[in-house]
Design a protein around this nucleic acid. Structure first.
Lengths: 138, 138
DNA sequence: GGTTAGTACTAACTAATAGATAGCGCCAAC
DNA sequence: GTTGGCGCTATCTATTAGTTAGTACTAACC
């Protein structure tokens, strides 16, 4: 068990990252965690460990392809841990890494706030649609 | 000036919202604020008021179409306020509503955390790509 | 013992969506 | 008078998401 190519702790630590810059890797990672399925996967895994198909049932509407793709991206970014038992049939468990857990708490905070404020959003929508509809008096 | 169809304060307040349910409106709104451009627009507007093209320059890489579309969705959801002066040339200013500001602080928290942790993400990626690359020894 | 269902995926194809480009009517600056 | 800026929208194409079928095997049911 060698420790392969040593990655010095500070190889990337000098760099500055800015999500507002097109092409910055931080924007890429942001899209992984704030993407349509990224948020839901992260928040689901915050509840605990899930197997692939259980996660698919939890995240209603996700296709197998997109779930696999999302998990692979999150795993590469070090946010999700994949534990595979090479049995037959295969058993693969997904969980959050410590880093992923930090992201997940922030996402959870956001979506819990959102769910609580949805009545306000619905009212805003109703007002908006009303106004739009009105000045088009037949 | 009648006050149109009164929208009772509690018309939507009994309903429960769950982003994990396919087809729930809360998921729709979530996608508006966590979408690729939604996050960046919200965080930019947290810095202050922007005009359309100034915002377009701030959010590097966004197309006119997507910026317009994103702003319209956020406005309808009551997160962004649009103030248009009907002068020539037109002057349109975008800002956050109080509701939008609440969402924006949470998004800001997330992206600031992310930018700070990007070195960890980069290291995770390097480790991951290494491992993948390795067991394909030419 | 043969059918059905489940496991974790990938490959191939199609539907939806994002992005690029051009145009609008008008004005200010060079 | 030509160029560029304002805030968009319409049209067309490139990218991406979603759907379906298949893999190799087991466990449960009739």
């Amino acid at each position: 068990m060698d420790d392969r190519v040593a990655i010095p702790q500070d190889e990337f630590s000098q760099l500055t990252f800015d999500v507002f810059m097109r092409g910055c890797v931080s924007r890429e990672t942001m899209e992984h965690i704030t993407g349509r399925w990224g948020v839901l996967v992260m928040v689901a895994l915050h509840e605990g460990t899930y197997r692939f198909n259980a996660l698919r049932r939890r995240v209603d509407g996700v296709s197998e392809k997109m779930l696999a793709q999302t998990l692979q991206a999150l795993e590469r970014d070090g946010l999700v841990h994949r534990e595979a038992e090479p049995t037959i049939p295969p058993k693969v468990e997904y969980s959050l890494t410590p880093l992923g857990a930090q992201a997940a708490t922030r996402l959870l905070d956001l979506i819990e706030w959102l769910e609580g404020e949805m009545p306000a959003v619905m009212e805003a929508r109703a007002r908006h649609d009303q106004a739009r509809g009105d000045h088009r008096t037949t």
